[in-house]
Amino acid sequence: MASQGSVTTARQRVARQHKHPVNQLFHDEATVGERVADKAASGIGSWWFLAIQSVMIAVWIAVNSVEFFTHKWDIYPFILLNLAFTIQAAFTGPVLLLSGNRQAQKDRLRLEHTAEVAESADKATLEILSEIERNTEATLKVLEHLKKRRAAKGGAQA
């Protein structure tokens, strides 16, 4: 399908190649803080992060509970691991809001852009309508003109 192909090429577009003004402002002109926020959100919200976190938790629990390992720093009930979880959660919340705020800002910008475009599209539609009305009027006049001419001709013949 043609539309599918165009979505694929749109997906491949990266920074500074965006076509839509909202993407240009939002991604291409993002500040350093905004770029880091995007990176943080996409880093935490990825399967890599989840997988690495799971492996680290498994290693932590294994080392601290299995007899074989001699160096133990956080035995049952894993109070330091609890703190690590809490720290992760304490940072995930703000980062979630950070990325949510950014998305809300984009939504706001997109609607503003829609309003701008809709306004001129509305004007164009109304102009098309009035142009066609003018055309109809002109055609009507041509028709009347022809009718009058035929009537005059018919009268002359009669």
Partner: peptide, 28 residues
């Protein structure tokens, strides 16, 4: 009436202003 190059520049200019100064003067 259609979006010419000047109009596009005007729209982007306005969006840029709204982008950095939120919560005022919304059109939509």
């Amino acid at each position: 009436v259609s979006l010419g190059a000047d109009d596009k520049a005007r729209v982007v200019h306005r969006l840029r202003r709204v982008h950095r100064a939120p919560a005022t003067d919304h059109k939509h």
